[in-house]
Nucleic acid binder design. Sequence first.
DNA 1: CCTACCGATCGGTAGG
DNA 2: CCTACCGATCGGTAGG
Lengths: 224, 224
Amino acid sequence: MAKPDDRTVRTRRRSDGARTHEQILATAMELASVEGLGSLTIGRLARELDLSKSGVFAHFRSKARLQQQTIEAAREVFEREVLEPGLDAPDGLARLESLCEAYLSYVERGVFPGGCFFAQLLAEFDAPRGPIHDEVVELQRGWLALLERLIGTAKERGELDSSVDAQQLAFDLYAPLELANYLSVLRRDPTVVERGRTAIRATLTSAGRREGDRNRLGGRPTKE
Amino acid sequence: MAKPDDRTVRTRRRSDGARTHEQILATAMELASVEGLGSLTIGRLARELDLSKSGVFAHFRSKARLQQQTIEAAREVFEREVLEPGLDAPDGLARLESLCEAYLSYVERGVFPGGCFFAQLLAEFDAPRGPIHDEVVELQRGWLALLERLIGTAKERGELDSSVDAQQLAFDLYAPLELANYLSVLRRDPTVVERGRTAIRATLTSAGRREGDRNRLGGRPTKE
DNA sequence: CCTACCGATCGGTAGG
DNA sequence: CCTACCGATCGGTAGG
């Protein structure tokens, strides 16, 4: 607060520690999406950001807190890159399709260099017990609950057949989204995402009350 | 060879180093399926097996070779637990269904404590470049090629519609297998596997030429 | 945000 | 298969 308008500043020092904190988390998300949250080390982050190990450490005071905050930062990216655009569509079937397409687009655009942060987290912490496992359970529950809620609304509006099992359909939609993510990263080929689009389209069509409904999930890939 | 019939042997020492080698790999597969191949350390294995670190190290002479041999050992388990029972069915659609069911049963039986070894490997090494990544690419290619081959045969025999895209259908079948694996481990609840069975059944039915075909992938869960 | 440290563990080597 | 080591890196602390 002493010298707020100092224009002689070298490069950083704009908003002091907060800016560094953000940069650390941004790098942490990238590293974790590629190599896993377990491979994320404070020393590695320090090297990557040209800071001292203790400098990085001071921002979090424990590795567990670094991991928690990295997950939280990734949650915000997911919110901005998938949930917000995905849910910005008319309620019902259109919103369900839009959400699936938003996820596939997020994979296709390579928002995280190692693919979906949470797909990585699911596979990494599905088995080992601990606080991160518990958080992944909650995150997955929330994701599936969201899909089930949209499916329920689409059923109420008569856009999906009333005989549809919402939990099963949520599983049926989630599966190709996940596989499209893993395979597109594995092959370094975002066109695999098109397989996911085709699968989603077919699943929604066969769950629909009639195929005359306009299907907005077309074959046009997202330009970026 | 000097004392082949020594009955005064304490406990181990049956087939000497080969037995120890197998035990190390068995433990390595279990650990890797839970925590990932990257978290597998020689020191950890030594503790788990009550050996010295160098004793374990001597069997492999590098961490890379330990990882390679662990993957190879897991490949043999997959062969025995999935491919052999799965492919032991009449050629065509029945064999395709049987293979999917064999995978789901392998997940359900908890052959590896952390779920499918290769699903873990896919998620762990989809992004980081290196020799393991390259091997995962090959393994995935082989798995999808096998599915596509079985689909091709089923089409030739008229058990699947001739308009079916073999690559797409392989993707559509693979997706629920993978998700059933991840979610059943995450929730520690093998009944999630039933979601996978339902998805596979629906996908094969809608790809079939007519629904009058006998569908052997029933709702009876594998007893063990 | 830094230097300077701590004990533990890593992959790996020497030598037996 | 062992003991005894090596340099590097880990998470974390002290003290500024």
